[in-house]
Write a protein that binds this DNA or RNA. Structure first.
Lengths: 355, 355
DNA sequence: GTGTTGTACTGTATCGATACAGAACTGGAT
DNA sequence: ATCCAGTTCTGTATCGATACAGTACAACAC
């Protein structure tokens, strides 16, 4: 039989409450008695209050859940996600809070059950597309939710993000300023209907992913300023955020006639895939074809990729802070982080008669 | 006021137990009544049993804790750890079990408190040195523990590992078979006293890290077979598992006179750092100096590094299986995974008069 | 002697569910 | 009519702790 508070209380000859105080509220009893209780507890093999029972009574769990749309392993694979998780876990540690990894996977019943069963004080929604139905379950829990991946549709949600459109506009302006007019975009979650490859995107409002939508908006506006019509931009939708898929998408646009002189990828991973294709084909990035990314993951510097820097660590850190200690002031509940255009060798002036 | 089982029970006019069964044991009541209960619950905004209360009563939490000795962010940084976490989380998902990240950080009171407060059904000890005092707290919880990082001192522990010594012996034999006699070892956690740099390790038993100890033992035995005395082997202790520290360590041994013709690193990360130094100094790996690693992380193939392949994903997967469903048969409680020597271009025959 | 203040501890109600034993039906065989 | 087995539902005890109001008693002021 496992010892409980009562066991210890009986052994010492005090009440259960006093033993509880000895462990959790040292200022509520004399040091002498406290010491005696703690000693007896140790002798009996009682190792402190049961976390589950404590949680039930106190209403606090001491953990936050991180929701990931793809398999949980995504958090350990995608470089930007890894950075984000680092910031988040470091901040959580600081608040003596655990981090529970939760996958929404197929958005099925199992996912919903997992959300309902998760013992957490709040949720951090990281890379979950807004249309996931399991999100209803998340809201239903009535816990604080911090949104670090898509638009705060609900004003109650905590929110940490960057101004995606403004950042993308910087990239777009940089590209057209270099003289590029035949431009290809590699996107992600451009359509809900799971179709991939080349497509036209006449109506941005229908793009399901907030991030893709806003970045596309930024690119479009910048292109428009230079007189490049949105309908003349090549758009390709890639299914998964991997270099391989980025490479496939880049190959597709490069095979078009006329081929684009600039490839604007919606993230660094795709851009790195594109750089790989250029190398294979003997094309020089920044000379023959310019390539841009987004995120500035560590490998971007190595590959000399022009991109947008946004601190994933900082974003993760703030996400954790917000959900662990939700500010009541509405102004503090929405945090927008700065971004910076990092120009490297992967972009350069358009070459006359290139390709 | 948040609705509870009782609220729903009163509304429908059945007992609390029946509502509980409607959610958790559908076979215990008629489909008709179940549907009625579920509908009423939805109307009242009751979203299913409270996870905390359910855990208290049933004694199951539906989550396992992963203990990491350095900051939690280690799990997201070290490539081998990332692979391990992938395997573990995938298996956990499969069992509808959450994964709680826990850091032992400074091995202080906060760490102990975190362990006592963690709502989990079991622990997976990943990269925790055996001497950490917080491990006492872990044992005290009386939960299943799977050991994926150091020797199972306690026969009660579940255990998944590789035969480190045998694997290291393969590497050692490969190196001496190529004719190398002046050999340097880059280790990690070689000593508890936080001293780094060149050192002698006369007594392997005193090496605190199980992994380092066993791998060193394997190298030593292989060297001995070829007549290379252990005391003639250069040994350097690196403080952190990063390429940079590997590079620093490699530079130190290369500055010795006579310089070693082979650098045997205790993991791939250090080996990759060593390869970096060689490149900087204009030395060719596998020609001027041979380099070996351990783990076969993805980048090892890229760098053409000779190393030992052990499946981190498989190890993580099995660790999760063991702790979620601990087998009673002692034979099944200890799993030893196979390893394989992968010979690539970073090793080659010793050059006469090299360096 | 009476009242005030403060510290140290106790007792009961409660958090929200599940386990388990038993009661009340149902339908068919005897 | 009686019995039996099977199904469906109920009632109570319990999981292990914390919240909060309340009691006991010492110290001090007037």
């Amino acid at each position: 039989m496992k010892p409980t508070l009562q066991t210890v209380a009986d052994a010492v000859g005090v009440s259960r409450s006093t033993v509880s105080n000895a462990f959790s509220r040292p200022d509520q009893l004399s040091p002498k008695l406290r010491k005696k209780i703690l000693n007896t507890a140790r002798q009996l093999g009682y190792m402190g209050p049961d976390p589950t029972a404590r949680s039930l009574r106190s209403g606090k769990v001491g953990a936050i859940g991180v929701l990931l749309a793809p398999a949980v392993s995504y958090a350990f694979t995608d470089p930007y996600a890894v950075e984000f998780m680092r910031g988040l876990t470091e901040a959580a540690e600081h608040h003596e809070t655990g981090v529970l990894l939760l996958s929404l996977k197929d958005d099925d019943d199992a996912a919903r059950a997992a959300i309902q069963a998760a013992s957490v004080d709040g949720f951090c929604v990281y890379c979950v597309p807004g249309w996931y139905r399991a999100m209803d379950e998340v809201w239903a829990r009535g816990l604080p939710i911090v949104n670090a991946s898509f638009e705060a549709d609900d004003p109650d949600a905590l929110f940490v993000a960057v101004d995606e459109a403004a950042a993308a506009r910087m990239v777009g302006r940089h590209v057209v300023a270099l003289g590029h007019r035949r431009i290809a975009l590699i996107g992600h979650y451009v359509r809900t209907d799971q179709t991939y490859g080349l497509m036209s995107v006449p109506d941005l409002e229908k793009v399901p992913s907030h991030v893709t939508r806003e970045r596309f908006r930024g690119y479009r506006d910048a292109f428009a300023e230079a007189g490049v019509d949105w309908s003349d931009v090549l758009i390709v939708n890639a299914p998964e955020s991997t270099r391989t898929e980025g490479a496939v998408a880049a190959a597709q646009v490069l095979d078009q006639i006329p081929a684009p002189t600039a490839i604007v990828a919606i993230n660094d991973v795709f851009a790195l895939g594109a750089l790989g294709v250029l190398a294979e084909r003997g094309l020089r990035a920044g000379h023959d074809v310019s390539v841009t990314g987004f995120d500035d993951i560590p490998d971007a510097a190595v590959a000399q990729l022009t991109t947008v820097r946004q601190s994933a660590i900082e974003r993760g850190r703030i996400a954790a802070e917000l959900v662990i200690n939700p500010p009541s002031d509405p102004a503090e509940r929405h945090v927008v982080l700065p971004t910076e255009l990092i120009v490297r060798a992967s972009t350069g002036p358009v070459k006359e008669g290139s390709i």
